[in-house]
Design a protein around this nucleic acid. Sequence first.
DNA 1: TTGTTTATTCTTTTT
DNA 2: GAATAAACAA
Length: 745
Amino acid sequence: MSDITASSSFIDSIILNQVQKEAVLYNEGPQLVFAGAGTGKTRVLTTKIAYLIKHAGMFPNNIFAATFTNKAAAEMRNRVEELTNIPCTGLWIGTFHSLCARILRREAFKIGYESTFTIYDATDQLSLIKKVMKELQIDERTMQPRLLRRMISKYKNACIPPGELDGAGKSFFEREVINAYARYQRELKRVMAMDFDDLLTNTVFLFRKNPDVLETYQNHFRYVLVDEYQDTNLSQFYLVKLLAREHRRIFVVGDDDQSIYSWRGAKIENILSFDKVFSNTKVYKLEQNYRSSQAILDFANSIISSNKNRVEKKLWTPLKSSMDVVVTRYRDDRQEADAVAEKIGDLSSGKIELGDIAILFRTNAQSRIFEEILRKRNINYVLIGGTSFYERKEVKDCLAYLRLLVNPLDSIGCERIINVPPRGIGAKTQERLAKVARNKEKSVFEIVLSKDFEVISGRAVKGLEELSDIFNHLIQLKENSAPLQDILTQMLTETGYVELLENEDTEESRMRLENINELLNALTIWNEENPQKTLTDFLEEISLVSDIDGWKQSGNAVNLMTLHCAKGLEFKAIFLVGLEDGLIPSRQNFNDELKLEEECRLFYVGSTRAQEMLECSYVDNRMRFGMYMPMAPSRFIDSVPPALYRFVDQSMLFTKPVKPIRAPLRKKQHAEKRKNREFFYQPFYDDFSQETIQYRMGQMVAHNKYGQGKILSISGFGVDMRLTILFHDGSRKQMMAKFANLQAL
DNA sequence: TTGTTTATTCTTTTT
DNA sequence: GAATAAACAA
């Protein structure tokens, strides 16, 4: 199969190092590539696929390649097309979730679904779990719905259906979980929906229960490739094994040092024991880094070297001279954000574009202060992640209407919109409807459609009939294959959704209208680009998009994202902020050795995103839950030898201890929060104009007549800034900043 | 039944 | 400080 003479011409046209080349050309069995950060992993993968198509006689259609995001998949598809000059629309490349969805749509009836099944996102999932809990009379105070969701997800990740779980001998709590899990799965099937985990596990179940189906796919997928293999979970492992166990043409790439998704069920063991599962695996190690400067690599290597559970490797680069890695200490998150913004301003007036810069943080909540300050300084930014477009209330409402047109059994969707906009169908009415539906063995939505309400009071009937008429009209439009955007527009006008928002006329309502318009646009464009696809396809695509998918690196905006989101990306300059104990590592992982190591890897992943410049920072005090909390620098920075970075202290002299004010305050909480904030300092940051931030409260200064003193307060700004200073002789003076001619100490 | 105010929780990270 | 749940008035 591998014709080296024929292939070498093609391979030679692509620049690959020796190891990369060997990995691409070898074709005799399972392969595992350990690819450190920035070692050209994507290049190897795309070249491998191109090689298979061009020289190993495979059709794009016969290749199954799982990536971590749809964005990565799209880029790789393009790259392969460039390399081969062969259209690759047939190539099975995508996230595990989308690949599985594709398989499940075809084979749905074999596992008791129709091909139009609905995909439930995390929010829908939680709604259904709450509903199940109510039915089972499980108190939300004894078991948090989120916890139950996590437990269920755990079972699913391991591909254990509720039927295989035995409650005997288990704790009461566990029995309740199993019970709820069983009920939840039954409900999902009843409403013809699958959650994210189901997409993977149901595919595995499909193959396990139908050997003939499995065989078809085994024969069809002649090569199986997996990117980011360190972040696959058990069900993904089973899937890959099922597909590849006969022909053993499997190629996986990953880096155990970049495994950061164990909380989502990822098993680092998958990569560490791959060669034991697939015998005679060829193992490759890519260690030459093509991304970062030597200083950054030294720093990163040092971070990761303190982890015990890893395959030893060390990144290196032939590049020599480089900028120091900087670690900066700030007083608080506001100062941190402000200083970072200022540095970004400086950088972007030099040779680095805004788009080459990223601010990375641990939690989404940290983004807000950066947004605020970047806006104030008129620096363009893009925030990747956070609450995505498709999670907005108004967008989800629209989608719920559309979902019901495809799947009238979708009870969560129905509950969402039955009284939105308000049409007098409250909790009582919905309860009664549910009863009627149960008696007639139909879904609530079907009852509404057929206007078969029975015992419902006059007021509610009016609203229900209205809804019924609207939907019957929409269904008619759909059957006449009206364009999707027309159906949505119709819905928006007939329900009065738009009218309601227009009448509200607030900043928020205008924004919602804008979002709805954006959705309409997206729908129109999608419709034009995919004339043969259906509403089901559209709904699937948007439920499986990741935050990063829509993003493309643009020249004129700083990128803000979480460390997790940054995986696989690179930037010339990185600001890794909030490097504090409790954040990195997260407080919740303090007491777990393995999770601490994962937090360390997260820091490593963040650092290795940088090409030329890496600046980390931590603060002494951070606003969390609406109040200031004292913070300590991350333990991970302590383990790095000081020689590997340059330390800068910007925290100044304002070091009053701050008491953490926590939980049992209840009624006094509000007042306490305010006090906490006032105690901290007045908002002198609020009106900084670019160049006047040289004075800070508590700062020590020297005056050439009065000697040393401490700044007590600052008022005004710019040329009007006045300082109140307490001098060492006990005198208190107020002076204009611009005339005082002070020296900072 | 609806819209308003008040209390409470929430922060890891995401397909 | 924001989002959500609960409590309340109209």
